[in-house]
């Protein structure tokens, strides 16, 4: 028997058809439609979820490859009654317009804060070693896997900066 996938804390059985991507599993099989399908080819980031603490594109992985893994989706980060700090900051800074890329942006940003805390370097980092300064350029580079066609980038960066500053303060 295949081990279940744990999604937002609840174990879920692996789907029968191995072709089902993690994205379609979440959206279709589990009805967790907060995770969005924007391109289905890893080119837009709307499907970003956090698997075992790491952000990935759920469209480019099969549900069957995630036996025993723990998946967190936008629904697992917060609710309308209890939004996460990032969700609240996106609302306050108007870090979205149509809202379709937004769950992916927020999942990405949530993981990004952890990556910064662990001092992972990025293409924008001046130095590869040591602590990473949290600049807007660092955030932009690290968020570049999440397209926003409405053009809310400037506000998204402002929202993330606010939370990042709070976490390091």
């Amino acid at each position: 028997m295949a081990e279940p996938i744990t999604v937002n804390g609840t174990p879920q059985p692996i789907p029968d058809d191995p072709r089902v991507t993690l994205l379609d599993f979440l959206r279709h099989d589990l009805g967790l439609t907060g995770t969005k399908k924007g391109c289905d080819h890893g080119q837009c980031g709307a499907c970003t979820v956090i698997v075992n603490g790491i952000r990935i594109n759920s469209c480019l992985t099969l549900a069957a490859m995630h036996e025993g893994d723990s998946v967190t989706t936008i629904e697992g980060l917060g609710t309308p009654d209890e939004p996460s700090p990032l969700q609240r900051a996106f609302l306050e800074h108007d870090g979205f317009q149509c809202g379709y890329c937004t769950p992916g942006q927020i999942c990405s940003a949530t993981a990004l804060l952890q990556e910064l805390a662990e001092n992972w370097p990025s293409d924008a980092s001046e130095k590869l070693e040591g602590s990473i300064a949290i600049t807007s350029e660092e955030i932009r580079e690290r968020m570049s896997g999440n397209l926003c066609r409405c053009g809310a980038y400037a506000n998204i960066v402002a929202a993330i900066e606010e939370i990042a500053a709070g976490e390091t303060a």
Partner: peptide, 16 residues
């Protein structure tokens, strides 16, 4: 090598 990897794709893709 670190620089080359970080110049490619996106964080989500590199994570997988």
């Amino acid at each position: 090598l670190a620089r080359a990897i970080l110049a490619g794709a996106t964080q989500q893709l590199r994570n997988k």
